[in-house]
Amino acid sequence: AEKWDMPLAYPATNFHSENAAAFAACVTEGTGGEIEIVTHPGGSLFGGADIKRAVQTGQVPIGERLLSAHANEDPIFGVDSIPFLATSFDDSVKLWSAAEGAVEEALDGQNLVLLYSVPWPPQGLYFNKEVNSGADMKGIKFRAYNAATAKLAELTGMLPVQIEAAEVSQAFATGVAESMISSGATGYDSKLWENVSHFYEVDAWLPRNSVMVNKDTWAGLSDETKKVFTDCSAKAEADGLQKAKDYTKLTLDGLASNGMKVLKPSDQLKADLALVGEAMTDEWLKAAGDKGKAIVDAFKAN
């Protein structure tokens, strides 16, 4: 029997971590204990930022990571985070099936094998007032935490303010920030209703967590074992998607029942944001080149 340590960045109670634990149990059982996967949630082994490198270099055989965080290395990794391109769970699945091949190829070049990928709840806009159009957004202080969100602020005429994740609720309480883009789950987990009034389900994008294995380790497995892995992965991907949907509903209901206004965007706002989306897709295409174009074309053709 062989023990596989599997670092996870998010807390044990997070649905991704629960899903990964089920996957680990599935593999352990499927291989008859020949490979025992032990999950280490909450960054207790490696922090999120280090997990990909740790798997890549064989420090651990397997791990889970929010791949879009590595878009600096290869724009393909950021395909799931283009604002207002794929704006629903169905679209997210479509985009992913268009992109999966290219992502697998990029990972292969980094000594990694992709097993499965599960989306987070869709990203929505938090505001401290009613917003019905792009014009309403002008001049609002918006939390920008990476290049894409800074660009988003620029395109919508909002004022970018830089705030680290740990300081978000305080920033809203003190008016340092008046808006941000994040999933309903973020607001639910950090009780944002105490400081923010409106949440718009614009479903800007659905970032994904991907589970990957070290390529050398993978090559050393028997076909039989590989089959166990692929079967468990397929199950984890399907279960994870359902969990993400359930969690989205749970957290949005939670925001609403705590007094936050959870709203669908107006047609005007939708149209204005779609324009922003086009600009940002172009931006990404410039970085991602022909491979990127092929993905976006395939997605749009569907």
Binding site: F46, G47, A54, T57, G58, Q59, A166
Partner: peptide, 22 residues
């Protein structure tokens, strides 16, 4: 207790701990 490469893992976490913004 593990068959993993100790030194590489050591540097990964030491770099993360030493270059932390907090």
């Amino acid at each position: 207790f593990t068959s993993r490469p100790a030194g590489d893992a050591m540097i990964t976490v030491i770099w993360a701990a030493s270059s932390s913004w907090t």
